[in-house]
Simulated assay, not measured.
Amino acid sequence: MIAVVGATAAGKSDLAVDLALRLDGEAVNADSMQLYRGMDIGTAKLDVQEMRGVPHHLLDVWDVTVTASVAEYQRLSAEAIAGIRARDRVPVLVGGSGLYVRAALDHLEFPGTDPAVRARLEEELARTGPGALHERLRGLDPAAAEAILPSNGRRIVRALEVIEISGRPFTATMPEHRYRYDAVVQIGLNVPRAVLDERIALRVDRMWDAGLVDEVRALEKRGLRDGVTAGRALGYAQVLRYLAGEWTQEEAKADTVRTTRRFARRQESWFRRDPRVQWLPHDAPDLLERALEPLR
């Protein structure tokens, strides 16, 4: 199987479709926010025409009120990949959610949970906000703090919970890089930082023009504001603040660009730590052929 990884706005989805068409393959989503139904514009989810006839799996799985679970995604992705392989087709994993990519590809077991520890940390999160907990995480496990957005209270709580339960850094619970499948190729799309920043700003403008505010307004009626995961998604969280009267539209858009750029840096750092990723320039004129070369 093959995986296409890298930062947001790097062009992963288009390359994955090209690969699937050439390899008689099917795409498997590894973007945590594209698993949510109705979150289309803000996650740059491909429409039917853009999929070009390639079957796509694990899109629109959860309602926006459901809290994301990497362990559940691991089970779902294993089922999807097994089904594709049973049809003698090639799975093409595509997405920028690093932990989800590893959950799909690697031998990865998730640490247990302690309800009492989790409840105490969640109470502290509600009382003090994610900033203070993120600073604590930075002192205990700088690598985990670098990989988790300071605003992502749910993931910060989980990292601190694992540290307290195991007595080890959260990142130390991640096993060595070892695939669960016989033959895997990971292709990373490399985009210069200045170019990526420009692409992100352009993407956010296009999302606003395509009706992101209306999409969020409709999802708010379905419980988006109460969604522990979906309600904090990039773009969606900012629009919710605009709809609540806390920000102007321009403030919400500007913060979406800033936050997405920071998130893209974290994505790059995550995937750069995986020595198995083979990096290719995103704008190579022969990108598809270069991506196919490791398979040969």
Rank of each mutant, 00 (worst) to 15 (best):
L224P: 06
I200Q: 01
I187C: 01
V94G: 03
L133D: 14
R203I: 00
V195H: 05
V92Q: 03
V204R: 00
V94R: 01
L15M: 02
Y179K: 02
V277R: 09
H107V: 11
L105A: 04
P150D: 09
G227K: 02
A210P: 07
Y100M: 13
P142L: 03
N152D: 15
I81Y: 09
L240G: 11
A9T: 09
K253P: 04
L23G: 08
Q238I: 00
D60Y: 07
A284M: 03
F271L: 10
P192R: 08
Q186I: 03
G98Y: 09
R37D: 09
A183Q: 14
P294H: 04
D40K: 07
D182M: 07
L287C: 00
L105W: 07
L93V: 07
V66E: 07
V213K: 01
S151Q: 15
D182F: 08
S77L: 03
D106P: 13
S97W: 05
G6H: 10
G98R: 04
A16V: 07
R203P: 02
R232P: 04
E124Q: 15
E164N: 03
E161W: 13
H57I: 05
K12A: 05
L59I: 11
I156N: 10
D47R: 15
G223W: 13
G188M: 05
A103T: 05
Q238N: 04
D182T: 12
T65G: 08
L105Y: 08
G223R: 06
W62M: 11
E146P: 13
L196N: 10
M1A: 13
H56Y: 15
R75M: 06
E164C: 05
A9C: 15
D214P: 06
V90P: 02
T113F: 15
V48T: 11
G139H: 09
K12G: 04
K12D: 05
D18S: 11
L288W: 00
G139V: 01
A80M: 10
E123K: 08
W247E: 01
T171S: 14
Y181F: 08
A210T: 00
I81L: 08
A7N: 12
G131F: 13
V101I: 11
R52W: 14
R241K: 11
A9Q: 11
T171I: 13
Q267I: 02
A16K: 07
S69Y: 07
L243D: 03
G53A: 08
